[in-house]
Simulated assay, not measured.
Amino acid sequence: MKATKRFIFQSLLWLIIWLVLWITQSFDYGFFRENLLSVIFQILLLAGLIFFAAPKLLFKKKYLLFMLFGLAAIVLGSYISSSLFSLPPPRMPPRMPGAENLVNRAPRGGAPSKFLIHFLLLAVSAVLGTFLETLFYAQKKEEETIKNNNERLATELKLLKSQINPHFLFNTLNNIYALSAISATKTQESISYLANMLRYVLYDCEQAFVPLTKEISYIENYIKLFTTKSSKKYPITTTYEIGSKGILIAPMLVIPFVENAFKHSNIEKVTGTFLNIKVISKVDEIYFEVENSKSELVENKDKVGGIGLENVKKRLAILYPNKHELTIENLPECFKVSLKLNL
């Protein structure tokens, strides 16, 4: 709510309160004249609070100046409103003989002064106005925080998506170039698989979520592209149990695990190696598992659990907070990744 609307809202609130009080006094003109300036100063006090004191002093943590400004405004307004438009004191009847003694015996005290009444009214207005301004300010800051967090997360997700391993693309192009000198058919197949993968990355991945079947199609094209470069029978097994085609998943979420498995399984050796991929989906759950053999050679380049896995961990924390279970097991014989997503 903008400052002008908040000022109008609070002003109308106090005008309604004063109108109700005036009605209870049977529209007495004396009551109206006695309190007219108090109402005016209440509105002026709210204007000063909303448009100056709160944004310039209170919310910039100049608390002492804010209190001095508020107190000075309340005292000045109370003094002016209680001094002007005051009704003349009522005429006293002629005193009877001995009335002085009765007056002296009368109890002291009586109604509070007009200045004190107006001071309390303006103080209540200031306190209530400050409370409402603080409430609106806190709400505005919370909305700004949420908006900034959403923008930050969107930027971070876009950055994380852009970190998809570019080495795969260059290696694939090199393989296709090599195939072109051997088999035109395999070259055409490889280009087709690569085109499908690039179409998924460039177009489908622009969406926040994609059908799980498209993510699996990418994995299948990845496997085909890998196996096309050789006539060997690679020990790769895949298991897909998709309960519904409408199940959605964040794009390129499990691909880094698959790339990692191919990279470190030494699958090209064939003998004594393996790579198993499993995807099982239910109505409210997706289970992904990839298990691969480990190369006997220690690879210094692109270590297991490097940038790719860290990328996925960050995306999971953003997209599926408290709704995922990621287990990474670096066993002596194999490397296994299990991911469960609660939808």
Rank of each mutant, 00 (worst) to 15 (best):
Q188E: 10
E189D: 14
T213V: 13
D204A: 12
I286Q: 00
V258M: 01
L275Y: 05
V270W: 13
L169H: 00
E268N: 07
K224R: 13
I182D: 13
N276W: 08
T185V: 13
V270H: 13
F274G: 08
K245G: 10
F209E: 15
L202Y: 15
I182W: 13
T228I: 14
Y200Q: 09
F257N: 00
F262G: 05
L275T: 01
V279E: 02
I216C: 02
K232W: 11
N196Y: 08
C205W: 14
Y240I: 04
N221L: 08
S231H: 14
T187V: 06
S190A: 09
V258D: 02
S281L: 04
Y193F: 09
A181Y: 12
K214Y: 12
I219M: 07
L212Q: 03
K233A: 15
R199L: 12
D204Y: 10
V283D: 14
N260M: 01
I249Y: 07
N174T: 02
I242F: 05
Y203Q: 15
L248V: 09
S265L: 00
I267M: 00
I286M: 01
T227R: 12
I267T: 00
A208V: 14
I176L: 14
K232H: 11
V283L: 14
M197L: 09
D204M: 11
P235L: 07
T239Y: 13
L169F: 09
S217Y: 10
G243Q: 12
N266A: 10
N221R: 08
E215Y: 02
T273L: 08
F209W: 14
N266D: 07
M252Q: 07
Y193M: 08
Y200F: 11
S180M: 09
L179G: 05
L253P: 02
I242S: 00
K263M: 01
S190I: 04
E285W: 08
Y222L: 10
I223Q: 07
I176W: 11
K245L: 09
K278Q: 15
T238C: 11
D284A: 05
T228K: 13
E189A: 14
V210C: 11
Y234N: 09
Y203D: 15
S265D: 03
I280D: 09
G246T: 14
F226C: 02
F274V: 03
I182L: 13
N260I: 02
L198E: 12
F274W: 04
S231N: 15
I286P: 06
V254P: 05
E215F: 01
L225A: 03
I267H: 03
I219Y: 07
E220I: 10
I182M: 14
S192I: 11
T187D: 03
P235D: 06
T239M: 15
L194H: 07
L212R: 01
I182E: 15
I236Y: 07
I176C: 12
E259C: 01
